[in-house]
Design a protein around this nucleic acid. Structure first.
Lengths: 163, 163
DNA sequence: GTCCATGCAAACCTTTTGCACTATA
DNA sequence: TATAGTGCAAAAGGTTTGCATGGAC
């Protein structure tokens, strides 16, 4: 049995636990999310559902994503593009960080125990109770650099010295 | 001379460098941003401008914030509240991270050389050219914990074991 | 006098909501 | 059959844009 099927089962269990009906739309949305590797936008989801012959309304997609996020089977991300992206959590490390290319939108995942460490120390020092964190590094991926893309620099050239 | 004035001067220099006019609206928006300690929303800004007797249109506020962000004198943040917040960068460490309270929205800043370190190592490993990063830790601040607030837990109780 | 900024309102985009209808259990 | 979900379209909410007017240089 593959991970997609495991996730599907977990989602069905979640629905049962919450006393919610299991519908074909929920099944379809969950299936697409669990079967996709990357970080999906709602537009991506709509497209894949249409390809598969499902005619699912946007509202239902959003409502189902909300359930998937609540169940903790899916994570919601906002990479500053003006819309959200969704990533399933099974079959990968539950805690990981992201490198995000400002040019092409490519997302590379990595893990870092140091970040966990920083979180533990800094939250303890401030009496803060952590629920989750995110470390996102924005820049240019190798491919975009090799394609000659440059990061724009519009800022003050040297604020302090020229003040 | 205080930091607010330094920042104002830098902003005027930025405008001159870019060949852009220095207007009273830009002056007013910049002044409010530089004089404020926290992480301002556009709504906050509008309010403070009104208090000061300035009648500045929303569009002008957004356009001026865009200039301030481009000049690097101001940073834009998105803490997932559905709108952006703005923070001036002078008179504080240019690189710092945030603890964000999910209950009251309080923001606590901290610094971490370890994160810089992680960024350097992981970007080198992936041939990625970093432009900026953000580490945000979400949870409950001390005050909200003491007020008895709990983090909701709606997820699957134990996905793997009960699968 | 030439540009550019401003202000207003309309447009935009993603996400949410109301409601009549349909499907689940 | 009771309860909740679905789909559509409208609304919401923050942000952006078009355009006529006014200000900066």
């Amino acid at each position: 049995m593959n991970d997609t099927n495991v996730s599907q089962r977990l989602f069905r269990r979640y629905l049962k636990d919450q006393g919610l009906p299991h519908t074909r739309q929920r099944e379809a949305v969950a299936q697409v999310v669990f079967a996709s590797a990357g970080h999906l936008s709602v537009e991506d989801l709509e497209g894949r559902l249409r390809e598969m012959g499902h005619r699912t309304g946007k509202a239902t997609i959003y409502r189902t994503l909300d359930l998937l996020v609540r169940s903790r089977l899916v994570m919601e991300h906002d990479f500053g593009e003006g819309f959200k992206r969704y990533e399933h959590r099974l079959s990968r490390d539950p805690v990981h960080e992201h490198l995000i290319c400002l040019e092409c939108g490519r997302v590379i995942e990595f893990e870092s125990w140091e970040v966990q460490d920083v979180q533990a120390r800094v939250t303890q020092r401030h009496g803060f109770r952590p629920a989750r964190h995110k470390l996102e590094i924005y820049g240019l991926c190798r491919e975009c650099q090799e394609a000659g893309v440059e990061l724009p620099d519009d800022g003050l050239t040297c604020p302090i010295e020229r003040a």
